[in-house]
Amino acid sequence: MKKTFAILLASTAIAVGAGIPAWSAMHGAALSSARADENRLVRLASDDDRGDDDHERSGRRGDDDDRHGDDDDDDREGDDDDDGYGGSATANPAPAGTVAPPANGLFGSGAAPKVKVN
């Protein structure tokens, strides 16, 4: 009888340990979807070539001329991180690996993304 209880206890602990995070992710997805319905009924599909996004952006991102093969994080000389575009300072996001991904219901766990650029 003790063995039965021990097995039940162990398997229940495993089920709870694996099930709760997964359930939370599902629940988070549902919440995220509901939130989008309530607050952000913005239709995003930009199927067409819109004229209003065709502007040139002269002077943007400093005057760095390191162009071809530039896959870096554009940490350019003389380009401070706190000189907000248009005069408003905006905090930069935390890079991957420094904090967990946001709890937006899309991610199954808090595991850091793996990234590769070829």
Binding site: A25, M26, G28, A29, A30, H68, G69, D70, D71, D72, D73, D74, P93, A94, P95, A96, G97, T98, V99, A100, P101, P102, N104, G105, L106, F107, G108, S109, A111, A112, P113, K114, V115, K116, V117, N118
Partner: peptide, 26 residues
């Protein structure tokens, strides 16, 4: 919205591969 899921910009002609643990519900 993007804390913890932000990386470097990607150069012309390059391929970005990101592996994420995504919810099946998607």
């Amino acid at each position: 919205e993007i804390n913890g899921i932000t990386g470097a910009s990607v150069g012309a002609g390059r391929t970005l591969e990101i592996t994420l643990d995504l919810a099946d519900a998607l």
